[in-house]
Design a protein around this nucleic acid. Structure first.
Lengths: 146, 146
DNA sequence: ACAAACTGAAACAATTATAATTACAGTATA
DNA sequence: TATACTGTAATTATAATTGTTTCAGTTTGT
């Protein structure tokens, strides 16, 4: 469920740069996925107050918050997913051996720790930062005449 | 491929605690998986110098390194996997739009950064630490007579 | 008022990733 | 020299992820 994060960040950067209302179909085209998937993700960003929607003709999605204020941490929180986790557990809680019964929790704790470490780091990156990263590196001071 | 890490850590902790040679079948039983999977993972730990093998009758795996020196960072390096990554990429490198063509790399960089952050943290945790965590919490100073 | 074009949501199909199973050659050991 | 391992590969089974299709509900513009 990590690609949801990619899609959300991509959509926010794109909405910011286009600075207009874009439908799920238009977003899907740029992101290379399908509109239904876009909508499912945008619902979460809307609940988090990062975007708003306009229904009806020429409706779609647009940024609500200031891109300088939207951190990737907020995006990850909005999506409610974990960067680090494991569905598979070794051993089993009802086994006699202390290692077999305890290892699942031990690793869950480690993964939870790593996950918050990641999320703390993402508080330092905003949608504006990413826009800069993409567009400043393609803009030279002399217009590309090296 | 995150469960490989769970299995490797579990196996190392178990080998350390049992302090004897254990076959892939015995390890698989405690970890709750199959011997072939165990062997595939143990090959990597062996290449990294963390364990050794003994073939033939009553053969199997045993710890080579000091559990106080085996960090979870070393384990993750031995397995050569990423805690944070995404196979799915938004957009496409050959698209005209700078965002669509650049977003994949932007997120790859972010994920690589988060991944090394996680691995740095794991330099602080050893196999001994985990053994302690499991066994010290189940051992009270008066033998459990509260 | 009404048609158009959107979101939100669900059900289903397709694809991909992950894990389990089976089998067997090679090897050290008792 | 038979035994019981590892190392490896091929195959099957299962689970997770992504894509597709459909439709009810809503708002907008004419």
């Amino acid at each position: 469920m990590n690609s949801e994060f990619c899609i959300a960040v991509h959509a926010l950067v794109f909405l910011n740069r286009k600075a207009c209302i874009l439908s799920s179909t238009e977003l899907a085209k740029n992101i290379c996925t399908n509109p239904a998937r876009i909508r499912k993700i945008m619902v979460k960003l809307k609940k988090a107050g990062l975007i708003s929607t306009k229904e009806g003709l020429d409706g779609g999605y647009f940024l609500k918050a200031d891109p300088k204020d939207i951190t990737l941490f907020q995006v990850s929180e909005a999506l409610d997913f974990k960067f680090v986790s494991s569905a598979w557990k070794s051993g089993g809680v009802d086994m006699d051996c202390l290692i077999a019964s305890g290892m699942g929790q031990v690793l869950d704790n480690i993964y939870a720790d790593l996950d918050s470490l990641c999320k703390e780091r993402l508080k330092q990156i905003t949608i504006s930062n990413i826009d800069d990263e993409i567009f400043l590196s393609h803009t030279t001071v002399n217009g590309g005449n090296t």
